[in-house]
């Protein structure tokens, strides 16, 4: 039964993810005075790319084909682990936040290795920047996890979420707010959004994520895009559920699950729309200013831990 619920959660996430990207792009286009390609365009892109032949450079290794699959599977596992719709988890695979973070890191590493495998200057450049950001994000992530786990005494996401559902006042406590702001900056950095990385850039010298996937094409590129988008769903879904724990199914009933699905879609699109609207007014910061931003988010996470001692 739980396995079925998880399968439904993964299906919903996979179906919603391209739409989320579509909503974000369309909103941004409208705010900038462009017509936009429509909400369904990412879905059409993904379908087209997955059917196209990939090109391999002469002498390229099997990693060019394997890395996109590793990325997409790691994203799928994290989508399954994070409680997006309900708080039910499999007994042997608990939704331990440390495990979720590590599973996402597998995808990060697959991308970085792909960037190096292509053997071009841009691939290496993107990979190097990507890993620097990942390395500096790590302290914020783990300290924020620590802050969230202190009130409930466990790092299991479902327990953290359950505590928030039973006592919604904890959501607006300083501990929770500081941790959420820190986590939001982490999500932006990890998924390559502004102000850390510009997903719509066409200038190679400023690229991070795009530079690593420059040499991939066709099916490989399709999986890479889908995998990166799914990361956004997993992380953003986690943050919105922590911020707005309403609508999350407390049991495995059909009606509760359907309500949770609708509520989740609404929350996710809302969060995506806020990010897209904010991105219109943001410029990408210089690469060597990114550590300052991440240090700021680390300070917030650290304050959140210290606050958790004072406010029981």
């Amino acid at each position: 039964m739980t396995a079925l619920a998880l399968a439904w959660q993964v299906l919903v996430a996979v179906a919603l993810t391209p739409l989320l990207i579509g909503v974000m792009r369309q909103l941004r286009a409208r705010l900038e005075g462009r017509a936009g390609a429509g909400v369904g365009q990412p879905w059409r892109d993904a379908r087209k790319l997955l059917a196209k032949e990939p090109l391999a450079a002469d002498g390229a290794g099997p990693l060019m084909a394997a890395a996109p699959l590793v990325l997409v599977v790691s994203s799928l596992v994290s989508v399954a682990l994070v409680p997006l719709l309900g708080i039910a988890t499999l007994a042997w695979v608990p939704d331990d936040l440390f495990v979720v973070v590590s599973v996402l890191l597998v995808g990060t590493v697959a991308l970085a290795l792909l960037g190096l495998e292509s053997g071009t200057a841009f691939g290496g450049m993107g990979s190097s920047r990507h890993m620097m950001i990942a390395a500096l994000v790590e302290p914020t992530v783990l300290v924020a996890v620590y802050a969230l786990s202190v009130p409930v005494g466990t790092t299991a996401l479902s327990a953290i979420l359950q505590a928030r559902m039973t006592d919604p006042a904890t959501v607006v406590s300083p501990v929770s707010l500081l941790a959420l702001v820190a986590l939001t900056i982490v999500v932006l950095a990890e998924t390559g959004r502004l102000p850390v990385d510009n997903p719509a850039t066409h200038l190679e010298l400023t690229m991070v994520h795009e530079a690593m996937v420059l040499e991939s094409s066709g099916r490989d590129l399709g999986w890479l895009e889908l995998g990166s988008w799914l990361r956004l769903t997993a992380l953003l879904g986690l943050v919105v559920n922590l911020a707005l724990p309403w609508g999350v199914a407390a049991d495995l009933g059909v009606i509760a699950t359907l309500v949770a699905t609708v509520a989740f879609a609404a929350k996710l699109f809302l969060a995506g729309a806020i990010i897209a609207a904010a991105e219109v007014f943001l410029a990408k910061v210089r690469l060597f200013r990114v550590p300052e931003l991440l240090a700021g988010s680390f300070v917030l996470a650290f304050l959140s831990v210290t606050a958790s001692y004072l406010i029981v």
Binding site: L113, E117, M131, M132
Partner: peptide, 26 residues
Amino acid sequence: VSLVALTAGLALLTFVKVVGIAFLAR
């Protein structure tokens, strides 16, 4: 926790560098 996390992050970069530079590309 912060020190262990920073260590973990930098270890990730270090060993991606080892594998990526020594074994991949040309």
